[in-house]
Design a protein around this nucleic acid. Structure first.
Lengths: 218, 218
DNA sequence: ACCTGAACACCGTTCAAGT
DNA sequence: ACCTGAACACCGTTCAAGT
């Protein structure tokens, strides 16, 4: 609504992008905006609603993924491209705004923009042949994976953090090596996360096609 | 190590289970243990390492899932049961300790117990026929989904929160209804999350079998 | 309408003492 | 070895004033 509010929200997002969520306080934000902490409250209404507004702003950036100009129709085999485009865009936004991952797990993403995106994904799944009764579940399966993957990257679960020796007291010489583990690639080999994400998307698209063909047989 | 330390860790987990992570402070924990805040530091060494120790404790509970007594062998079609057992156990632990989800996304789960569990999962995927070069990726795909699903449930992303009308300014009458959406089940119908999780696991097991058969053709 | 300043009840953590 | 008490630099937020 108000321009002042948008300015404050922008400053909050910038601050969180640069220094992380833990560095975003009403006091640091106020300093950034050039005002007293209490001056923020009429505009953003407390820290909790500030965070809500920040994820709302981010969700609004989700669409359109890379829509063709003729509208939101999902045609033939185009469902694979639409789903991939959404997944890539969601991952990109999450990596660009690492603070958002933790927040997204605790909010139902019920903004108008988010609901519109979900609607498009439902349409794509129907086009793919997923039975209507399974469409919502499959959408949640895919979006849960995409959110989880990006959150793992952004948070450091995949080991993207600092290359320290994971603390004291590690003796992995025997417990960790099962009879099969020498067949696997080196555990600490660097991973191309873009390539892994694309391979995962491919497998999930095949899963969707498989659910669809199972539905046709039934 | 020390009994005092274990006692403090137990109190911290209990406090977080009951009242959430945000209610766990060095001060509230000290009061619970019956001691001054500063007395905790020699035992748990600061809040960050306290949280690390808490997830370590939780990861130690992950195994064994429901191991048969004759050892960790993965046989024939037993890989489906082993993976399902791990997934159910992980989800159960996450729902039992909702505070852990946020922490797990930011730590590589490199405790001895967690590495042992991952080793068993790798063995199961090899047994399923997944090509060695793809085993680590598929393990991450599945564990990322399981963690994401449980985090969504525990955090409230799936709408399990309070049944309020999601704030002011919701007009979903037209934007939300695409041409297909009337084919879908009611958007706000209650969902059986246990059943959804089981259906997802089934689909992921089929995905694994499909990756395996693709590997056999190549 | 918009902002300030003092105050309250909290944080994690350091440091010098106590027994 | 184990714990205490005072202190420091932070939080989010309320409330009474200022212009």
């Amino acid at each position: 609504m108000s321009a002042r509010r948008e300015e404050i929200l922008g400053a909050a997002v910038a601050l969180a992008d640069e220094s992380g969520l833990e560095a975003l306080s009403m006091r640091t934000l106020a300093e950034r905006v050039g005002v007293t902490p209490m001056a923020l409250y009429p505009h953003v209404g407390g820290k909790a609603t500030l965070l809500d507004s920040m994820v709302g702003r981010l969700l609004a950036e989700l669409l359109p993924p890379e829509m063709t100009d003729e509208g939101p129709q999902v045609t033939e085999a185009g469902w694979r491209e639409l789903l991939s485009a959404y997944a890539r865009r969601a991952r990109g936004l999450l990596l660009q705004h690492p603070w958002s991952a933790a927040l997204l797990f605790s909010r139902p993403a019920a903004t108008a923009e988010a609901l519109h995106a979900v609607g498009q994904i439902h349409a794509a799944l129907l086009e793919a042949g997923v039975p209507p009764l399974e469409v919502r579940r499959v959408e949640r399966l895919v979006s849960t994976f995409v959110l989880g993957f990006a959150a793992s990257e952004a948070g450091g679960r995949f080991g993207g953090g600092s290359p320290e020796a994971s603390g004291p007291g590690r003796q992995v010489s025997e417990e960790n090596h099962t009879a099969h583990s020498e067949l696997l690639p080196c555990p600490s080999a660097p991973v191309d996360w873009n390539a892994e994400f694309e391979a995962d998307l491919k497998d999930l698209a095949d899963l969707i096609a498989s659910v669809a063909s199972r539905g046709r047989r039934a």
